[in-house]
Amino acid sequence: MKASVRLSVLWGDVGNALTAPFLKFRPYCCLDCRARLAKDKCSNGFPETRKYFRLRIILGIESSRSSAQTRTMPSIRTLKIFLSVARCGTFAAAGNKVGLTAAAIGLQIRTLESDLNVQLFDRNARAAVLNPVGRALIPEIEEIVRRYELLAVAAGGGEMSGTVVIGALVSALMGAFADALWSIRRQHPRLDVHLLAGMSSDFAHQVEVGELDAAVVTQSPHPLASTLLWTPLYSEPMILIMPTAPHFDLPPEQDEILRNAPFMRFDRSTWTGHLVQNVLDQCKVEVNEAMELNSVEAIVALVRQGFGISIVPKLANVDFDNDRAISVRSLDGVDVRRHVGLLERVKHSRTAFTGAIKSYFTAK
C-alpha cells in the first residue's frame, strides 16, 4: 500500500527545508520547487530582492513490491487509439475518428507511454510526431489487436459480428459485388458493414494505413505495396456505348464513330481511365474529346441523353442490352477487360469477412 502526505513549506530558506527531519522518508513522486521574486511591502524584515520559494514535497511510503510487478497491461482500446493516431497523423484527427477530444487522446497516449516506459511520440508546440520507437511498435500492436479481434470470431462459433469498414467503387456496387455483400449480410445478421464509395487509387492508401479493412477496386496499373494483397473477383469487358437518339451525326463504322463523335472520357488519372486509354491505343485512333468525368454512372447518363459516346466497363447488374436509350457495341480487335478484385492487408483482423467475399465469387 502507498501512503502519502503533502507538505507546503513557505519559507525564505530552501536549504533549511531540505534538511528537515521529514525528508528521511523516501519520496516516490516529485519535488516541485517554484521560485518567485517578491518585494517586502509589509516590512517583515526580509530584503526586497529576497527569493521566496514555494516547496511542495510529496512523500510516500512504498510497498516492497517493485514497479515492474505492479505495472498494468495497456487496454485493447488504448492500443487501438495508438494505431488511430499513427494512421491519422494527429491527436485531433484520431479523436474525430474515434469520437474523443484531442486532449483525451493525448491522455490515452501518455498512459500507454507510461505503461510501456517508452516515449512513442516526439512532441512540440504544434504537433506530436511518431518517433522511431513508436513506428517500430506498430506491427506488434497491430498483431495484438488482430489476435484479440479474432477471439470474437472463435467465441461466436464462426459467426461474424462487429463492424467492418469496406470501400467499394460505385460501379462495383452496381455490379456483382452488391449481390455478394447482400448474401454475406443475410448469413451473418450480427455483422455491421460500413460501406464507403470512392476511387480505387484512394482506397489503396486507406487500406494500407488501416482506415479500411478492405476495398473492392480495379486492378492497379502500378505495383502495390508489399503489405497489400489483391485477389481478383470478376472481370468486365470494355464496351462502346452510343445514344440511340444522338444530337450529332453518328457514322456507321467503329473507327469513324470514335474519331468524329463527341467522346465522354473516363478520368484518365484513375485506374479505369488507364484501361480506356489502353482500348484507344489498341484501336489506334484519336478521339474527339468532349468531356472528362470520374463517374461511369454520369457518363452513361450523358450518353443516354444523346450528348456523346463513351468506352466503359460492361457492369454486371446494368442491363445495357435492353436499354432503349443506349446502343452497345463490342470493340473489334480489342482485348481489354476491367478486372475487379478485393484489396486487403496481408495481415488483418477481418480475414473471415474478406474470405467470405472471395468464397462467394469462387463458387459462382
Rank of each mutant, 00 (worst) to 15 (best):
T351V: 00
Y52Q: 04
D192R: 10
N260V: 08
C33T: 11
V303E: 15
T218D: 03
G333K: 12
R110W: 06
V340C: 06
S67Y: 05
L195P: 04
V153E: 12
F53T: 10
H188P: 01
T78I: 14
A125F: 04
K358A: 14
A17K: 02
A168F: 10
R6G: 10
S64F: 04
I311H: 14
A178K: 02
V312K: 09
P313N: 06
Q206Y: 08
V164D: 04
D255G: 00
A103Q: 15
Q187T: 00
L169H: 13
F121E: 09
G306K: 05
L31V: 00
A197R: 07
S8I: 00
I311A: 07
A104K: 15
G12S: 08
F53N: 06
V145P: 03
G198P: 01
Q206R: 15
S183T: 02
L23G: 03
E256N: 07
A94F: 13
K364T: 08
E208R: 14
R350I: 04
N288W: 02
G273K: 01
R34N: 07
E62R: 13
A356C: 01
G156I: 00
A154C: 00
V340I: 12
S235I: 06
T90A: 12
E297P: 00
T19V: 11
V296C: 09
R185P: 00
K347D: 15
E344T: 15
I141H: 01
D202I: 09
F248Y: 13
W271C: 03
L37S: 06
R268K: 08
H194T: 06
M1S: 03
A20W: 04
P47G: 05
S75G: 10
L18R: 08
V170T: 09
G167W: 03
V9C: 06
D115F: 09
I138D: 06
G157W: 07
L331I: 10
E143N: 13
P132R: 12
L302I: 06
Q254V: 02
A86R: 09
P252G: 02
V279F: 10
I61H: 04
S183L: 05
A316V: 10
I138Q: 08
R186C: 04
A35H: 10
I357L: 05
H205K: 13
S359R: 13
R50E: 10
C42N: 04
L120F: 14
R123Y: 12
S327H: 14
P223R: 10
K347I: 05
Q206W: 15
R350T: 12
G158K: 04
A20P: 01
Q69F: 09
T78C: 11
I326V: 15
V318I: 15
T272K: 06
G156A: 06
I311Q: 09
L212V: 12
A154W: 04
E297A: 12
I257V: 14
E256L: 12
P21N: 09
R147I: 09
T90S: 15
L275W: 14
F307C: 08
E256M: 13
S269L: 13
C88I: 02
L137W: 00
I105Q: 02
L331T: 05
K24C: 00
A363Y: 00
Q108L: 11
L233E: 01
K80I: 14
V334I: 14
V133Y: 14
V334C: 08
S63V: 05
G341C: 05
V133A: 11
D323H: 09
R123D: 11
V300P: 07
H247P: 02
S200Q: 01
T163Q: 12
M199K: 15
S183W: 12
T163C: 05
M238R: 08
A316G: 02
D115H: 11
N288Y: 03
